[in-house]
């Protein structure tokens, strides 16, 4: 599969809900439709809730991956303005 190169990356380690989603949403808002956002986080609840909320808002979740004992990487493609 082709490697996805995100247009924007944010590190929200240390943040908890709802600020994890607030930061992710503001980042998506600042991007163009079709671009991909990479989110690095360490709050497990947000690894579940951010993808769900992003889909509710019409965005596409491309990847949810636990990369080590504490951290997750999410890839979200902006599909909706």
């Amino acid at each position: 599969m082709e490697e996805i190169v995100p247009e924007k990356r944010i590190n929200i380690k240390g943040l908890v809900c709802p600020y994890t989603f607030v930061k992710a949403k503001l980042a998506i808002e600042s991007m163009e439709v079709g671009q991909v956002l990479e989110i690095l986080l360490d709050y497990e609840e947000a690894a579940r809730s951010i993808p769900k909320s992003m889909e509710d808002h019409g965005q596409k979740v491309l990847k949810v991956e636990k990369i080590n004992d504490t951290d997750w990487i999410l890839l979200i493609r902006k599909d909706k303005e």
């Binding site: 709802p18 989603f21 949403k25 503001l26 600042s30």
Partner: peptide, 20 residues
Amino acid sequence: FTDDQLQRYSRHIILPEVGG
């Protein structure tokens, strides 16, 4: 937004009809 504003307005920003 400042950190204080992110906290103060977080419940607005989360709403699809409002956002940042």
